[in-house]
């Protein structure tokens, strides 16, 4: 790294900051738009030229959005669905990753390939039979219908296995010699050590499920079971010209994911780059 601040370097830094700020503004503009519109009155959103910033802390749209749609209920539904998927994935993936790391068994590579193969099969290729199956099981408008199909994960198993492999094998051998069972070793040694990787998987699966659209659209019909993403799109259908009310709803449902994103940024990004970047 170059610590001497030459005039050249200084100018370069100024240019870089200018470009960074410009790009940052461009990336954030749609999000800013949602916040801005959510605080404008009905007259203000129709004005020309458009208001690019709110003129006051006007919160009527939020109240209106909450009156028009049971956003609280939708948020609760999405949180339950996402938590169920998250817990399910943590459970199934840590068990599977344990077997792939610490147990030597026949056809291990074949089984691992089967797990990886699930990542290559797009949801669309299975969605029609799954939809028919959920209908046949009478699981439409239920949390099991929303969550169970997603409770196993090839990606998560792969992610956890990568981490489990960094745990010294001798630790396992010693525990086995002392008569510890697999489950004991998994729960008392492996899982506590793997907390960062489990956190990554937890955040990743929660976000993915919370943001789902197509599946909940297909298998929920009753207003009581709708998830936030479907609920917000329906609000738009009803309030076709009230963009301020819709944007208030958008802001409300973006808040939980932004909080999650900012507080777990590092863990999430580690998960997202795990499949892409080879060390």
């Amino acid at each position: 790294m170059n610590h001497s601040v030459s005039p050249n370097r200084m100018w370069l830094n100024i240019v870089m900051y200018a470009l960074l700020i410009l790009s940052g503004v461009a990336v954030l503009y749609p999000i800013w738009t949602a916040i801005n519109i959510s605080m404008l009155t009905d007259q203000q959103i129709a004005a020309f030229p458009p208001h690019l910033a709110p003129t006051s802390l006007y919160l009527q749209n939020f109240i209106h959005a909450l009156q028009q749609a049971p956003l609280g209920r939708y948020l609760l539904n999405s949180t339950i669905q996402s938590s169920l998927v998250m817990l399910g994935q943590l459970f199934t993936a840590s068990l599977a990753a344990y077997a792939f790391t610490f147990i030597d068994f026949k056809w291990k590579n074949v089984f691992f390939l089967v797990f990886l193969a699930t990542m290559m099969i797009p949801w669309e290729a299975t969605i029609i039979p799954n939809y028919l199956l959920i209908k046949k099981l009478n699981w439409t408008d239920t949390f099991q219908g929303l969550a169970v199909p997603f409770m196993a994960t090839g990606f998560g198993t792969f992610l956890l296995r990568q981490f489990f492999r960094t745990i010294p094998r001798e630790l396992h051998d010693a525990a086995v010699m002392d008569g510890a069972s697999d489950l004991y070793f998994l729960s008392s040694i492996v899982l506590p050590l793997a907390r960062p990787a489990l956190g990554t998987l937890a955040v990743y699966s929660f976000l993915q499920t919370y943001n789902q659209y197509l599946w909940p659209l297909l298998i929920t019909n009753s207003p009581d079971m709708r998830t936030v993403q479907i609920g917000i799109a329906l609000l738009q259908d009803e309030e076709r010209f009230m963009f301020n009310t819709v944007m208030a709803g958008v802001v409300i449902i973006l808040i939980p994911t932004f909080i999650l994103f900012i507080f777990s940024n590092r863990q999430l990004i580690r998960g997202l780059t795990a499949g892409a970047v080879k060390g």
Binding site: G24, I31, L207, I232, Q236, L254, I262, L272
Partner: peptide
């Protein structure tokens, strides 16, 4: 963090925002 923020945005909310834009 700013450049990666769209990871946290769902396709439904993005669609609604762009629909306004």
């Amino acid at each position: 963090v700013v450049f990666s923020i769209t990871i946290a945005v769902s396709s439904a909310t993005a669609s609604l925002i762009f629909m306004y834009l």
